[in-house]
Design a protein around this nucleic acid. Structure first.
Lengths: 337, 337
DNA sequence: ATAGGTTGTCGAAGCGCTTCGATACCTATT
DNA sequence: AATAGGTATCGAAGCGCTTCGACAACCTAT
C-alpha cells in the first residue's frame, strides 16, 4: 500500500506539497506539480479513504436510503438509484446503499458516525418517521418524494398533481366524459405515500373544473386483481371511455382484459398510463403516457445535495413538470349511440 | 460530535478501555463495562467511521457493483442488491453501490483507497474485463454469476445448467416432444453472459438425452418482438406443444399472443418460465416456473465474503440447485390427431 | 533602496481511533 | 513463601491524511 509520504519522498518534496497538488488548495509550481504527478502515477498511489475522511471530516460518500419493499415501482427505484450513483460519481462522491430495514436508526447511525456527508431518502411518506430525526441532526439531506410538511427540507419529485391534471386534460380534450382511474395498490394509499394522493388530487380537481366524471379505484398488481377492479368499474360506470392507470404491474393485465372483452384501444377505450417510458413502449399497445423521470430525479437530488455541501444550498421543493407523450392508446371518445 | 475520549472522561476510564468495551477484544470487568456503556448512552456516542477505518485498516464496507444496463432482469438485480445490503448489515457491514459506469477502474479505485474491505460483482460476463484486475489486487471478492474461468474466484449463482435440464425434463415427462425456448434478448447472448449460455447448454443436452426436439430463439422484451418470434417458431415447428421462456419481459406478451391465437394454456401449449416467483404468480396464467432465488444469492454472496474477511473463506463455486414449482401453465401434451 | 505583496514550499499538529506493551493486582500452585 | 498465570486497566504510539502558520524567495511599486 502506497502512502502520501512515499510519494513525497519519491518526488523529493514534503508530504504537504503532495497533498496540495492533489487538492489544488494552494498554488504549486508547474514543475513540482508534474514531478509529483509523475510519482503518483509511477507508484500507483491512491489516497486512503479513511485517513482522508478523518483528517478532513468529509467522507465523500452520499447515503441513499431505498425502501425495503419491493412491492411497487421497483424498476423506477432501481433507475433512480443508478442515476444517483452515476451522478454522485461525476461530483466525486460514492453512494452508500441503505435499506429501509433499519428504519430511522440508519439516519442516526450515518449522521453520528460521519459515514456519509449527507443522505438522499427515497419513497418518502407523507408523515415519514425519519423526518424528525433528519431535522434534529442537521445532516444535509434531500428527499425524493414529498412529505406533508416540507418545512426546512429539500425535496425533489415529479409534480404528480400536475401529472394527474395533465392526464384528465388530455382525455377531456378528446371528448371523454367518463374517466376511470386505476390507482396504486390499496397498501400504497394506506401508507399515505404522497405521490399517490397528490396524483389523485390533481385528477379530481381538474376533472371537476372540466366537468368530467371521475371514478378512482386502487388496484393491486397482477391479472386477477385487475380483472376484479375492471369489472367493478365497468359495472358502476358502463359509459367509461377513458382509463388512467398508475400502477406499472396493472398495465399489461388491463390491456389483456380489454382485448379479451372485445374493447378496442383506442377506438372504444382510451388508456393513459403514468409509468416509465420503457413500460409504455413495450406494452402490447404503445401507450400514451406521462413518464416518471427517474434519471432526472436522481440527478437533481444529487446536485442539490452537493450544493448544500458547498454551502450554496437552499431548502426548496423542486417539482419536475410532467410531460405527456401521445402514443397509440388514446383517441377521440366514441360517439354515443 | 462526541469522541471516544469524551466518553472515557465521562466514565472515568482511559480511552483504550472504552475501545476494548466496544470491541470486546480484551476482558473488562462487569462494573467498568456498565459504567462505560452508560456513558456511551448518555452522551449519544457513535464511533467515527473514518478514524476507525484508519486505525484498524478495516472499513466495514462491502462494495457492490451492479450493471449499468437496465435492459434486463431489473427486479432481480434490485432484489439481489437489497438482499446483499440487508445481509451485510446483519454482519455489521454497509454496502457501497458502484455502477458499471466506471467499469474496471472502480475495482482499482476501491481496492486502492481502502474504501471497502471487499467487493461483490453482479452480472459477470464469461470473459469479464474486471477479473484480471480482481486477481491482481488480492481484494477479497465474490461474483454473482459465473465467468468462463473461475480459477481462484468465489462465485455464487443459480445452477442454470440444471435449470435448463429441469425445464426440459418436466415437459418431456408430460409427453411433450417439440419444445421451443424463448430466450433472452440477442444482446445478452452477444455479450456472452454466462447464465444464458449455461441454461441453453442444460436445455440442449437434456433434450438430447431425452430425445425431444428443441428449438431456441432469442427474443427482445415487449409485445412486438414476441409476436415476431412466436410466429417464426410456430412456422418452423407447427407441432410445438411446450414452451420455455427465459425473459421476464416476454412472459406477458407470450401469454397474450397465445390467448389471441386461440391456443389454450395448458391444454394446447404448456409454458414453463424461468423468472422470479412474483412474475410467475402475477401473470395472467399462474405459471409453472423455476424461480431465480435472488434473496438466497445475495445472502450467500455476503456470507462467503465475510468468511473471507475472517480468513475462513475458500475459493469455490456455489451453485444453487434450481426448484421447479408446478402451477397452472403445464399439463400433458395434447394427443396428436 | 525599501516596504509590502505574491508565490511556492515545508514542518508540525492533530483528526479519533486501535493496539501493543507495561503495570498492578489477585488467585492458584508448588 | 515464592512463583506462575490470569485479569483488568492505562499510556503511548501510530494509522495516512489535511491544514495552518512560518518562511524564504522573488516581484512590484514607491
Amino acid at each position: 500500500m502506497v502512502t502520501l509520504a512515499e510519494v513525497a519522498q519519491h518526488a523529493g518534496v514534503s508530504a504537504s506539497t503532495v497533498s496540495y497538488v492533489l487538492s489544488g488548495k494552494r498554488s504549486i509550481s508547474a514543475n513540482t506539480r508534474q514531478r509529483v504527478e509523475r510519482s503518483i502515477r509511477e507508484l500507483g498511489y491512491h489516497p486512503n479513504a479513511g485517513a482522508r475522511a478523518l483528517a478532513s471530516s468529509k467522507s465523500n460518500i452520499i447515503a441513499l436510503m431505498v425502501p425495503l419493499r419491493t412491492d411497487m415501482y421497483v424498476p423506477v427505484m432501481m433507475e433512480i438509484a443508478i442515476a444517483v450513483a452515476t451522478a454522485a460519481r461525476t461530483h466525486g462522491y460514492d453512494v452508500l446503499l441503505l435499506t429501509g430495514e433499519e428504519g430511522p436508526d440508519a439516519v442516526r447511525r450515518v449522521a453520528g458516525s460521519g459515514l456519509a456527508d449527507g443522505m438522499i431518502l427515497m419513497d418518502v411518506e407523507l408523515d415519514d418517521e425519519r423526518l424528525p430525526l433528519l431535522r434534529a441532526t442537521d445532516q444535509p439531506s434531500v428527499l425524493i418524494g414529498l412529505p406533508a410538511d416540507t418545512n426546512g427540507l429539500t425535496c425533489v419529485d415529479l409534480d404528480f398533481r400536475a401529472t394527474g391534471a395533465l392526464c384528465v386534460e388530455h382525455l377531456a380534450k378528446q371528448g371523454h366524459q367518463d374517466i376511470a382511474v386505476i390507482g396504486e395498490a390499496p397498501a400504497v394509499y394506506e401508507r399515505h405515500t404522497g405521490f399517490a394522493e397528490r396524483t389523485l388530487d390533481g385528477l379530481r380537481s381538474r376533472s371537476r373544473e372540466l366537468g368530467v366524471r371521475l371514478l378512482h379505484r386502487p388496484c393491486d398488481g397482477g391479472y386477477d386483481a385487475m380483472a376484479v377492479t375492471l369489472a367493478r368499474i365497468l359495472d358502476e360506470r358502463p359509459g367509461t371511455t377513458g382509463i388512467i392507470v398508475q400502477n406499472e404491474s396493472a398495465v399489461e393485465p388491463l390491456l389483456a382484459l380489454l382485448r379479451q372483452q372485445g374493447r378496442a384501444v383506442p377506438e372504444d377505450v382510451s388508456v393513459v398510463a403514468i409509468c416509465p417510458d420503457q413500460v409504455a413502449t413495450q406494452a402490447s399497445v404503445r401507450l400514451t403516457s406521462v413518464a416518471i423521470p427517474a434519471q432526472e430525479m436522481g440527478r437533481h437530488a444529487v446536485e442539490h445535495l452537493v450544493a448544500k455541501f458547498e454551502g450554496r444550498g437552499s431548502d426548496e421543493v423542486v417539482l419536475i413538470a410532467p410531460e405527456l407523450t401521445v402514443r397509440g392508446s388514446t383517441g377521440p371518445a366514441p360517439t354515443r349511440p
